[in-house]
Design a protein around this nucleic acid. Sequence first.
DNA 1: TATGCGTGGAG
DNA 2: TCTCCAAGCAT
Length: 344
Amino acid sequence: MKYEYLLDWYDSNKRTLPWRNTKDPYMIWLSEIMLQQTQVSVVIPYYNKWIKTFPTIEKVAKADLDNLLKLWEGLGYYSRCRNFHKASQYVVTNYKGIIPRDYDLFIALPGVGEYIASAVMSIAYDQSYPAIDGNLKRVISRYLGLRKITKRNLFRIKKKLNTMIQINPGDINQALMDIGSSICKSTIAKCSICPLNITCKAASSLDATQYPEKKKKKSIPTKHFISGYISYDNYILITKRPSTGLLAGLWELPMVEYRNDSKLIDVLNDYTTKSLGCGVNIINKIGVVKHAYSHYKICITLFKCEPKNINVKNSQWIHLNEIDDFTFSKANHKLFNSIGIIND
DNA sequence: TATGCGTGGAG
DNA sequence: TCTCCAAGCAT
């Protein structure tokens, strides 16, 4: 077979990863969800913790979303977790807990796109679908000498891959992913040790990393927030974010965006009075926390406050001991650290 | 097709 | 510190 050398390379060079010890489609699916835009080394502990807690898809379907989000805390892109929960419930309800072998049925599930559908169908079920992630796009672009990722070139990449995955598609897909992550990286191409180097167009060029062209990144804006550490006795006030959008369903210290022309002191009292019902007296400034999301940065100024009254709406008083029971974003953990509350 | 969606590692 | 990058999907 023409591409058997890729399988040979994979056998002796593949990384040992927790989700490679199994053909269980649930585990492979979970790993693919977690690995979206996320480094392998970051995913491994989250994956192990999740599988230990939820060894089957039925357990996921039965779980409360808040408990799932707590396990996901810190991994980012939390809609992956919400979609996986929904999809698990759909599979348990409609497919008796058996993950569909049919590509069209599987890709119809929330959070499953072309890549994940192809990866699971090929790795777990040995079906010939090219799992075209960022690695394969880059590796095959270079192999074919393609400068740009256009629709037409993507078609060429898919066509080429279809000739490569006729036998053992799961291992071929993963071999190419491993080549992409260890040899044919975005900024470094170690062509001398690449099993594809004989026939690779980019390998015989001056600089393989010129393929394909990188998109220019747009600079991202900074938004300014004011936040309140509002407490009495050992209780603090937290709010739950909306169920859609950024950090959906996570908890946070009350915070509100302000404009440059607004009076900082008034903003927090207005917000807590109108939206939370308590209103605050500001005691002192605790500090400033900066954090970056993928599409904008935030700068949060945190004030220690006392509530004018403790009857609140759209928010909840929790004891300091209970903080670990709720899911907070990274920015909020930075706020906690600035206060001196150290938690995981 | 472009943008929203998080976080931590690496240079 | 700053910037780019890392197994994408939804809209």
